[in-house]
Design a protein around this nucleic acid. Sequence first.
DNA 1: CATGAATGAGACTTCATTCAT
DNA 2: CATGAATGAAGTCTCATTCAT
Lengths: 195, 195, 195, 195
Amino acid sequence: MTENDKREKIIAAAYQVLAEKGYDQASTKEIARAAGVAQGLINYYFPSKDLLFAEVIRAESERYCESLSFLQSKGREKLSEESLKEALEVPKSRAVNDPSWIRLRYELFALGMRNPAVSESLKTTLAGKREHLTRLIGEIAHLPEEQARPLASILHVVFDGLGFQKLSDPAFDYEGAYDTLAAMLDSYLKTLHKS
Amino acid sequence: MTENDKREKIIAAAYQVLAEKGYDQASTKEIARAAGVAQGLINYYFPSKDLLFAEVIRAESERYCESLSFLQSKGREKLSEESLKEALEVPKSRAVNDPSWIRLRYELFALGMRNPAVSESLKTTLAGKREHLTRLIGEIAHLPEEQARPLASILHVVFDGLGFQKLSDPAFDYEGAYDTLAAMLDSYLKTLHKS
Amino acid sequence: MTENDKREKIIAAAYQVLAEKGYDQASTKEIARAAGVAQGLINYYFPSKDLLFAEVIRAESERYCESLSFLQSKGREKLSEESLKEALEVPKSRAVNDPSWIRLRYELFALGMRNPAVSESLKTTLAGKREHLTRLIGEIAHLPEEQARPLASILHVVFDGLGFQKLSDPAFDYEGAYDTLAAMLDSYLKTLHKS
Amino acid sequence: MTENDKREKIIAAAYQVLAEKGYDQASTKEIARAAGVAQGLINYYFPSKDLLFAEVIRAESERYCESLSFLQSKGREKLSEESLKEALEVPKSRAVNDPSWIRLRYELFALGMRNPAVSESLKTTLAGKREHLTRLIGEIAHLPEEQARPLASILHVVFDGLGFQKLSDPAFDYEGAYDTLAAMLDSYLKTLHKS
DNA sequence: CATGAATGAGACTTCATTCAT
DNA sequence: CATGAATGAAGTCTCATTCAT
């Protein structure tokens, strides 16, 4: 009980610190301080810093999927360009409301590409997100899985990619990009449903 | 004679080491060794490690734009779904042929989000790439700038995003995603040209 | 048990090394070796080398005041030129018996003029020494505080200054200077007590 | 001609930089920049950095003696406590008008205590200053050399010492100390002349 | 279980000095 | 004579990890 409690506290603290400071600056000392535990406890629960961050990825993945879940309720509506735009509001607003989340994700991306321990976690998590999005898109757009899956992949990377652009360059036309994305989706879905 | 010979060597070495090892592991010591110069020379030419990597970003940006340039020649062809797919082969093949390039880019993304010196360079470079892509797409797809620009933004992030997915997860259906991307583009462009 | 045992050892070692080698040559590596601890422990207890030396200053200041304290016992004696000379023997003998102490003090002086962290410590310590000397002189020479304080300031700097001269130049007539100092004090105190 | 010109420029630049930044921060690179010469030229004219600063000491010593010279003109006046105070204004105002000069001197003091090359220069220079002051005091106060010399030593160190105190601690009562110094001198000189 | 003092490797950076031009 | 690119040693500091308590 208490064991897992502290363990979770550490993961949550690592999550926060990593998002704010990035991998380099996220020292175990600071994480321990943020979690309110002794420094040595981190290496007691986690064999290494990398393995701790592998756990952080899992936590992030859960949050990601949950954040999209409420789209599910819209599954029964008829799909107009209007309702598409509305649905896209969810990922779109994330970059504005929670920029450190995007920072965290890109931090993990970079980390995963060179760190075996993190890499494994990342692979699982990415697949999980894709599947989650696949189901959601299947429901919303009334598409069979084989059509929803590649579309999910594309949207998955577009959400993060556009969010990153907005964060990195204030001059970037985030609105316009999402409008065009909606238009692309609209015409693509219409083409699919026609055939 | 060979003006700034060693300076260029350092940038090239930093480029390679950063792509292979990531920012953390890319020590100035190793970069110096890779460049075949004394460690101190790095800080002779570059005030700090960060500023060195800012130069690396610039070099990467140039290479990126050049890699897309040959698409320009296709501008006069009529746009079919077939020729679209062909054009998309260029960014698509990058993730396969030069995976460390994508790693480098994601490394820079993460770095740029928390490092002021890099951030500035990154902002400029991202805008440059967008504009470059905007012109290319305008020519290929016969679109006015205001339509080409948001499309360029989307494609820009999709290219990197899908490449990253492929690198991170061998099980990812890279082919299918690009097929769907081509189909989306096709139907969107047709819709645009109809109106 | 031995609370902050190693911390004290580090301060003592820093004290010694600083006095012997001067600030530049007093590397943390050597201090650690002299203290018998790992190099990293220095920055575990002290945020920076400067802040370590700020502690050294405090230690030096205490020792300085203690070294003068036994003069207090002479407060009740009648003040003759003879007994004045005797009292002056205390600071006078310091330059001979413990030259590295004077070296340390001058090192700190120079350091304090350009280093903010040390400067703050130095300011406090100088004021403390002046006040200590003020009280001592007040007692010995039966002077009120407003007369004792400026006299203390002068004596304070003369002690260090003459010690430094002796250390720097063996040809310097240290004895003669102290004799004259005693004579000056004698005539000044007599003038004061007459009025 | 031009040779010595550049040599002098380097010494002057070293003088300035040392006074402003202190020995540690006074890099040869910066000195070269301040002197407007190539970096390599410094080690062309001076075997080492230390030997350069030995030259700086000599330059400082000359300036020091010159700054006191105009007191000579007052030699014929009758010595009152008033005129004593006036004469003391010269060294007293130095700490206020040219604080970096005092900083320089203390820098040189510390440097001289641990650096053989500088030490030799310092010894010569200190003796020179003492002799200069001895002559001045002899003239002003109509004292024979054997009485003037120890007094000169004391004044020499008091001037620097009080100036340093003022610089280090704004709360220090500089005025009061100089007033007391004048009073001490006055009563001491009167005692001497009586006998 | 939990702590936090302690470690030691290694990172970035500075700098006096050298030497080919 | 003069330059400044280049060197390499050394410095301070950070940090994940260990271990006695």
